[in-house]
Design a protein around this nucleic acid. Structure first.
Lengths: 231, 231
DNA sequence: GTCTATAACTTGATAGAC
DNA sequence: GTCTATCAAGTTATAGAC
């Protein structure tokens, strides 16, 4: 006695956002990102994801070959397009303060407009999984580039003496704060917020506050260039 | 301004070497904290904890009635002794900059000397668990007190205008960075590091950098008082 | 593309011997 | 206080009907 299920509901309203018109794959990504953020990767089951999407659990596997591949798609969306351009930025010459502003602005604006809640993706509990080792390596590359940028700023006298590893963690922490406070924001709002965050980051690092306006102006151009970089 | 280069953490080895003489209960707490930090709460099984302690999995339940109670013991150790004194601190009068320095210094020094790797305890994946709702509430209390302190600093003109909620997240992020970079450090080293971190926090918030030496001096006294507060 | 059914396995926790 | 043995429930993932 197989009772036919009506797959489309529409009235449910899972409180999150309105997913009308989105593909199932896209709804899976958004549901998974929310659950990863609130319950962790290990604490999220594929059943919970499926329930939020309003399909049955095995139907997920038509769109993604494994649970880890859902996380990989989200990592590709966020980390995939920033790691290499920033590594290049750290090799470019010029003011380290302006380049750091440029990176923070660029990444903050991107994360604040992302439709996904990526907070759960950048914790050890997910990146230590063996099948995501490649993504862990790419995140390490990004972190190295940021620490290198800080080191250049210290060596050039633009920044106060500070442990570059500590500073890198603070900057990466700003990204996580951005993610958890705001996602899915409008472009205009995100641009304002990105300036606030990048300015705040520089205030903590810069030796002479009188250098800030210049770093902000030059950094805005660098952020713009990052946005157009071919990855 | 002597932000020192960083030594590595002593408790890196999962071996039983540095656990000689510790009670089984204590070894469970240390093993669990390490695993919660690296694999998340949901991603850590009681079998993994037991393996690291070198006992069988059911033996854990002689020392703790549930997996969640292990997390609770770690939360009690860290959050338990700081939430109320800091809430009181936010109600005290005086310089907000000095009080904020005092809190950050106090908490950083405590976390850097803790034998546990508490990084995994302060993420949503664990604090959203229903059985830990009381601890979530206490953490919210701490966060409210910090945001309130920031708000007082802005209203009094000591701090630059900034979103108090954003500033609170940055300060709490500094705690997480401290936890993940250093634990099990010596008291002397931790005191130096705590000054570095608290000074860094104030640099980002304070309106006039010339106020920093006074806030640091007065804040050191406040941190000392927090250390002697009866909880 | 989604479903039902289920395989193969891991999970937290309990019972009871020693 | 630790063990062996085990349970009920939950896990990811597959098979095959429609």
């Amino acid at each position: 006695m197989t009772t036919a299920r009506t797959p489309s509901v529409g009235a449910g309203g899972n409180g999150d956002g309105d997913w009308a018109g989105l593909s199932t794959r896209e709804r899976i990504l958004r549901a998974a990102s929310t659950l990863f953020a609130t319950r962790g990767y290990g604490g999220t089951s594929t059943r919970e994801i499926a329930t939020l999407v309003d399909i049955r659990q095995p139907s997920l596997f038509h769109h993604f070959p494994s649970k880890a591949s859902i996380a990989e798609a989200l990592l590709d969306h966020s980390l995939g397009r920033v790691a290499e351009p920033v590594a290049q930025l750290a090799r470019d010459g010029g003011s380290a303060a302006a380049r750091l502003y440029g990176y923070v602005y660029f990444d903050t604006r991107f994360l604040a407009t992302s439709p996904y809640d990526l907070a759960g993706l950048y914790s050890d509990d997910i990146l230590n999984a063996p099948e995501l080792a490649d993504w862990r390596r790419r995140l390490d590359t990004l972190h190295d580039a940021i620490a290198d940028l800080v080191r250049q700023g210290i060596d050039g006298g633009e920044f106060v003496p500070i442990d570059p590893d500590f500073a890198q963690r603070v900057i990466s922490g700003l990204n996580l704060i951005t993610i958890s406070m705001h996602h899915g924001q409008s472009a205009a709002w995100a641009a304002q917020f990105a300036d606030d965050v990048a300015t705040f980051a520089l205030r903590g690092l810069i030796a002479a506050l009188s250098d800030l306006p210049r770093a902000r102006r030059d950094g805005a151009a660098i952020a713009d260039r990052l946005g157009h970089a071919t990855v």
